[in-house]
Simulated assay, not measured.
Amino acid sequence: MTKSVTVKDLKERLNLELICGEEGLERPISTSDLSRPGLELTGFFSYYPEDRVQLFGMTEISFSEGMSSDECLKRFRQMCTDRTPAFVVSRHLEAPKELIQAATEAKIPVLRSKLKTTRLSVYVTNYLESQLAPVISMHGVLVDIYGLGVLIMGSSGVGKSETALELVKRGHRLVADDNVEIRQEDELTLIGQSPAIIEHLLEIRGLGIINVMTLFGAGAVRSSKKLTIVVHLENWDPDKHYDRVGLDEEKIRIFDMDVPKITVPVRPGRNLAVIIEVAAMNFRLKNMGYNAAERFTQDLNNLIGQNSSMTD
């Protein structure tokens, strides 16, 4: 699922000034890439990215001022296609009258910002990437534990929400319960958040729906979090072999990314909140270069080697 963005959304989000083309504010924006039409101003349109927001900075405006009015109008009319979302002028520069004329004829908005071109480009790109990123919904609970986005998954009734409640009581922050919307912002980043209708809410069987922010304060929740690790809760199976050392590394594929996964068996008496909390701390420690399981295995092998040499 991909969210849609209109020129009106972009205008309101970045507080852009509308110069002309109000009729085109509902034009869709389908890509987060921007275009700075320098080559197009010279007449080269072979690779014109017409579906991108066209950004004009000092360079483009200065170049157009050196063109004749007729030639300038011709170039701008060529830029105005059915797929062109909008023109955005940075640094509060004056938009060329030819651009305004061509955009008005094509009913394409011309917007203006006070920001410098580079900074404006970053803001526009970041906003469009966040809105146009592909999104999937996953059943689970997302919690911010020591700065890590931990997605707790498992079958219905296994205790995900109750575990999240205990984690919140221990000072961690709830992001989403039951339905987690995950979007891929780039090749290395997955961001999880809650649907608006259930934001800050937890469903506890026997108790009902509670508002975590109302009960525990604003510090107990956050709106979104980068997904770092997945913890899968499953009912204890006595016939299944569970990793007791920590050398096995599981992965779960979300979009085209492999996310580290830990499987935790559930049975009466196990404090799942503490286990998940320690799992998050241990994951951070591994990223810092220390792996307790590998260190133990290495020490054990060294001890076996020493004993073998003594026996010989």
Rank of each mutant, 00 (worst) to 15 (best):
L142M: 04
R75E: 15
T59Q: 07
L151T: 01
L39R: 14
I152C: 01
G171T: 03
I229Y: 15
I275Q: 02
R295K: 11
D299T: 10
D82M: 12
L285E: 00
M257V: 06
I182G: 11
A164E: 01
I229G: 00
F44P: 07
F216S: 07
R183E: 15
L10E: 01
M1E: 05
K107A: 03
K169T: 05
A95M: 05
K286H: 01
T228Y: 08
N179P: 07
P265A: 03
K160A: 02
R267W: 11
F87S: 11
E187W: 07
E71Q: 10
E277T: 00
E50L: 06
I29Q: 09
Y127E: 01
M79C: 11
N287V: 08
A279Y: 06
V221G: 01
L207T: 15
T81P: 02
G66E: 14
N302A: 14
T311P: 00
T59R: 14
P85V: 10
L167V: 13
V266Q: 03
E71I: 14
S68F: 01
L14Y: 11
E94H: 07
V278H: 13
M67P: 10
L41K: 07
D237L: 06
I304Q: 13
D258W: 12
D299M: 14
G305C: 10
T263R: 11
Q306S: 09
S161T: 08
S224L: 00
P238W: 03
L202P: 03
A95N: 04
S309N: 09
L115W: 08
T214V: 04
N287F: 08
F44I: 12
S155D: 12
N126M: 04
S32A: 15
E40N: 13
K107P: 06
N235Q: 10
T214F: 10
D312W: 01
T42L: 05
D312R: 13
I262N: 09
G38I: 07
T125G: 02
L233V: 07
R253S: 15
A106Q: 02
K114G: 15
L167K: 06
F44G: 04
P49W: 09
Q193L: 02
L34F: 02
H172L: 13
D144P: 11
P109L: 03
K240E: 15
V53K: 03
I191W: 04
E26H: 10
R270C: 02
G149Q: 10
Q193S: 13
P85S: 06
R52L: 10
Y123G: 06
D33W: 11
V158K: 00
R83G: 01
P49F: 05
M153K: 15
L18P: 08
T214I: 12
N287E: 12
I276F: 03
V221S: 12
T42I: 06
G21K: 02
T311K: 05
V221T: 09
P268A: 05
I210P: 04
I145P: 01
V110N: 07
L201F: 10
T118E: 05
I252L: 07
F255C: 12
F63W: 14
V180H: 08
E23F: 08
Q101L: 14
P195Q: 01
D144F: 10
P109R: 13
R244W: 07
K107R: 13
L18E: 09
R244T: 14
P265L: 04
I136P: 01
R205T: 12
K74N: 10
I262L: 10
Y123W: 02
V180G: 05
F63C: 06
